[in-house]
Design a binder for these strands. Structure first.
Lengths: 143, 143
DNA sequence: TTGAGATTGAGACATAATCTCAAATATAGA
DNA sequence: TCTATATTTGAGATTATGTCTCAATCTCAA
């Protein structure tokens, strides 16, 4: 998904909820899509501050959360106590594995993960199954 | 695993690291193994305070973390911003699914999950693969 | 242009977890 | 048993992430 598509989807999402597509939201969206890797809300905020863009922390947090709700951002949890986000540039679904020593993160594909989880979860009669997986280990360099 | 086995394993673990098996650690261990469900560090602490046992919050946090490191406690993350623990009473490996509305938690078995993840992760040459999965949805009652 | 309603920013607040360090405790050796 | 040494504990301060408040500002439809 590129930034242009994301803007369209986000505008529709906001409209459908009676919310406004504002300048700060556009700025945060573009900044998020120009990032090349995972970022936390605070990282994105200071990144923008460095570039002379002043958007408040609260707005960045709120906007990232609503962009996730709109489906144009993925969240990733490395277990460090804060959420990371990433713009889904590639269509391919992937998970992440992080090194417990140096923090290096790699992307991996786990085949049929979604299908496996959905069929296991179906037995509980839960609807709208979502999952969030955190994989870690010791990377080759740190062994 | 019962409390007796856990104590043995924990003692060995501590010894191998030059650490001491102390009264507070034993108390926390027994309390953890007498719990019938997931609990957070703070929940366990107040549970003990109710029972007239005064162990400080810091000690509970430290002990639970080291018990996890020793492999006698599992941690579970429901995404509520704090870690839950559970004593592995049954041998059977399971995951958890929690309702986003009412918070109800059920246990589910996801077949071959470990195997699937390990084989996907093997390609990265990471060692000591661990994972932590968080599954959620809307339970039948809340639909 | 205007008014109703949504948004923003700054900082206060909430919460989980960690850190500090003096006092207490455990263990090994005498 | 006593002592020396190292580890652990407790109480509260501290950090870190994220949320909330509310007055001022902005957006958009009419």
């Amino acid at each position: 998904m590129n930034s242009e598509n994301a803007i369209k989807i986000y505008k529709d999402f906001l409209k459908s909820k009676g919310l406004l597509y504002t300048q700060p939201r556009e700025i945060v969206l573009k900044e998020a899509f120009s990032a090349n890797w995972h970022f936390s809300a605070d990282e994105l905020t200071s990144q923008m501050h460095k570039n002379g863009i002043n958007i408040s922390r609260a707005t960045v947090y709120r906007t990232l959360a609503s962009m996730k709700e709109a489906g144009i951002l993925n969240s990733v949890d490395f277990g460090h106590g804060h959420i990371h986000y990433e713009a889904p540039k590639t269509k391919k679904h992937h998970e992440h594995i992080s090194c417990e020593k140096c923090g290096t993160v790699c992307e991996i594909e786990v085949e049929n993960l979604t299908k496996t989880i959905n069929s296991a979860a179906a037995k509980t009669r839960f609807k709208n199954i979502k999952y969030n997986i955190r994989i870690s280990g010791i990377c080759e360099k740190c062994t």
